[in-house]
Design a binder for these strands. Structure first.
Length: 376
RNA sequence: GUGGAUGUAGCUCAGGGGUUAGAGCACUGGAUUGUGGUUCCAGGGGUCGUGGGUUCAAUUCCCAUCUUCCACCCCA
């Protein structure tokens, strides 16, 4: 097999059905171990998943997802818990985000109300593009997909919602009050917002009717998180699924889950330069390598530093000192320890602070205590 | 799958039918025998993606092919 057709093979294989998400396999797992699991069952899972499409910006063939799910409970408290997790995680990462919430029942209610219940997919796919292509083209697309002009007209107030989350819910309610499902969806949203009102969130929560999220298996709340500073699409998404386990033979088990896209989050953080410097440079002390005898003198000192919890390394090659210093400098190592012939003779170590350039001759036995004091 | 770009030094990119293809960064040596960050000097490094065609001459023009990227479709 040559290189040319190996890449074609890859495409073929990836189209044949690899693991596209962690939620469906999770449902299978739950069904398989239903007798061993205690419900409500919670778990998180971090694993690579694949996409068969051509890769492009922010869209990878293989990427890591971090899933959190709670299954076997239909309490809306679980939705609230997930929102809380999102809130804490992005706050801790220092990424400024907005979490958008919608509800599949409301979307169904809308389709029902305008008399196009069976066109829900076309309708939501079109609505989803609202902020991307604008109202006019969304309407065009709806008509083109075969949604009646009358229905499109009825849809207009919903497409132009504004105000607070509560305002939006009130406006939608007026339109879809005839739909039992829709009304239920609105009640769910209100419950969630009520819970959220009782806690202090760091991130912004926004009711967004244009949020559709594929919607194959979602039945209630749906979530999506977007970075406010980086244009990259959604970095986290999820929702409530009432019968995902049904396809594997276990019905009546509702769950809700959310999935963080690790690679996109990484992209956002690296574009915003949010990775702390300590995360990049870990070595605090580097020993210069002068030769074999010096290596033997240094090794016990190195291990003593490490035992004291100070990240240290010895430059592995006997390169010119200048090169070793350049290495330490580029890595942002704070201290360089020098022990050559003269230091060894006196049982000493020369400790150089790479930031100030200041250098002090200390007893080898004092190295650990001196370094830990200076690192404070 | 559709459309548009791209491929030249390790990296980011400039250039151009005709002796020896350039820059910045990186790398190596020196000014500095055991001292980095700022300087200064010198040096190494290229099958110009691959295959074919046009031409006296192709890295440059044409065709094909592959790669990567961007957008659309889609987003499990």
């Amino acid at each position: 097999m040559n290189q040319a057709n190996s890449s074609k093979l890859t495409t073929k294989i990836s189209e044949k059905g690899l693991r596209y998400d962690l939620t469906v396999p999770f449902a299978r797992y739950v069904v398989q171990y239903q007798n061993d699991i205690t419900f409500p069952f919670r778990r998180y899972q971090i694993q690579p998943v694949w996409r068969a499409d051509r890769p492009q910006k922010g869209r990878y063939r293989e990427f890591y997802q971090c899933d959190v799910d709670i299954i076997g409970s239909d309490s809306l408290l679980n939705e609230v818990e997930l929102i809380r997790i999102v809130d804490q995680i992005y706050h801790n990462l220092g990424i400024s985000v907005v979490i958008k919430i919608n509800n599949r029942k409301i979307l169904s209610g809308i389709a029902e109300t305008i008399g196009e219940a069976d066109r829900i997919t076309d309708i939501t796919v079109a609505i989803d593009k609202l902020d991307k292509i604008g109202l006019e083209r969304v309407n065009e697309e709806l008509l083109q997909k075969g949604v009646s002009g009358e229905a499109v007209l009825k849809l207009q107030p919903i497409l132009q919602l504004n105000g607070t989350n509560e305002d939006k819910l009130n406006q939608i309610e007026q339109v879809i009050s005839g739909s039992e499902t829709g009304v239920k969806g609105i009640a769910e949203m209100r419950t969630i917002f009520n819970y959220l009102a009782s806690m202090k969130l760091e991130i912004e929560v926004e009711m967004d009717l244009t949020l559709a999220r594929g919607l194959n298996y979602y039945t209630g709340a749906i979530f999506e998180v977007k970075s406010k500073d980086v244009e990259i699409g959604s970095i986290t998404g999820g929702g409530r699924y009432d019968d995902l386990t049904g396809i594997f033979g276990l019905s009546g088990v509702s769950g809700v889950g959310i999935s963080f896209g690790a690679d996109r989050i990484y992209d956002v953080m690296s574009q915003l330069d949010l990775f702390p410097k300590e995360a990049i440079t870990s070595t605090q002390v580097m020993f210069v390598n002068f030769g074999e005898a010096e290596e033997r003198y240094i090794l016990p000192l190195l291990y003593r530093l490490r035992a004291a919890g100070i990240s240290s390394e010895i430059y592995p090659d006997r390169d010119k000192m200048k090169k070793q210093m350049i290495y330490a400098n580029k890595k942002g190592i704070k201290f360089v320890a020098l022990a050559g012939e003269s230091e060894i003779a006196g049982g000493m170590v020369n400790l150089k602070n790479m930031e100030s350039g200041e250098q002090s001759l200390i007893k080898a036995e004092d190295l650990v205590s001196v370094v830990s004091r200076k690192l404070d």
